[in-house]
């Protein structure tokens, strides 16, 4: 379970940055801000270790605090810390990391309310918290994660990322509990379909996961 989440988050990160630069346009007019964000998002492309994730999480936090009004830096900071929480082997430290990620998500949500991307990371964060003690937390947090995904779908039905997160969650859930490859496949196909149509609104807006979804789909179909 742990390993799947590890690979999943790494693959996610690879996808995260790869597509980020292809998009054009910006929501924030300060070119210095855009430049530094683009460069940090690019670094996420190659991020594979916890050290790099932490570094980038700190970078995004710094940018967010300086830029103040942009939601994206806090979104990415939350993403980095969530990935870190999923990555950490010593589960006793996860709750503190998750708390920090949650604080970033609150900031991102306040700056850009009703955001499907933020809700998606909320779902990932609930999964990270769940994995600290699955038998004790499954009942409560699996419901929380599902509720965030539902919200993400409602906030932006065109967003493919909640589908991807859902497909991954299904993959690691035993078939007897409604998970497994068979249950994940249609969700993943939906994700891939949506990725094909998805256009991010700016160069620093979330645009990760497409390559990962494609790859996962190929693996599943084998």
């Amino acid at each position: 379970m742990k390993r799947i989440f590890f690979t999943v988050s790494i693959v996610a990160l690879a996808g995260l940055a790869a597509n980020a630069q292809e998009s054009a346009g910006s929501t924030n007019s300060d070119p210095a801000f855009i430049r530094i964000m683009e460069s940090a998002i690019q670094k996420l492309d190659t991020a594979s270790s916890s050290t790099t994730l932490l570094q980038l999480g700190n970078d995004f936090e710094r940018i967010g605090n300086a830029a103040k009004s942009a939601w994206q830096p806090f979104y990415y900071a939350a993403f980095c810390y969530t990935a870190l929480a999923l990555n950490t082997n010593d589960k006793s430290g996860v709750d503190a990391i998750a708390e920090k990620a949650a604080a970033f998500l609150i900031k991102a949500e306040a700056l850009h309310p009703g955001n499907s991307e933020v809700s998606t990371v909320q779902a990932m964060l609930a999964n990270a918290r769940l994995l600290v003690d699955p038998p004790a937390r499954y009942q409560e947090l699996s419901v929380v994660a599902a509720a965030w995904l539902k919200k993400a779908h409602e906030q932006n039905p065109a967003n493919p990322r909640p589908y991807l997160v859902e497909a991954r969650t299904k993959l690691k859930t035993p078939a007897m509990l409604g998970g497994g490859a068979e249950a994940a496949l249609p969700v993943l196909e939906e994700a891939v379909k949506k990725f094909k149509q998805f256009q991010p609104s700016g160069s620093i807006d979330p645009n990760w996961g497409s390559a990962d979804a494609q790859k996962l789909l190929e693996q599943l179909k084998k």
Binding site: A32, N58, D59, R62
Partner: peptide, 18 residues
């Protein structure tokens, strides 16, 4: 201590301790 975030407050400049 590694992983600490060092920031020149209010700017983009800073680092993470290795």
């Amino acid at each position: 201590l590694n992983g600490a975030s060092i920031t020149l407050t209010g700017t983009y400049y800073g680092a993470t301790s290795g």
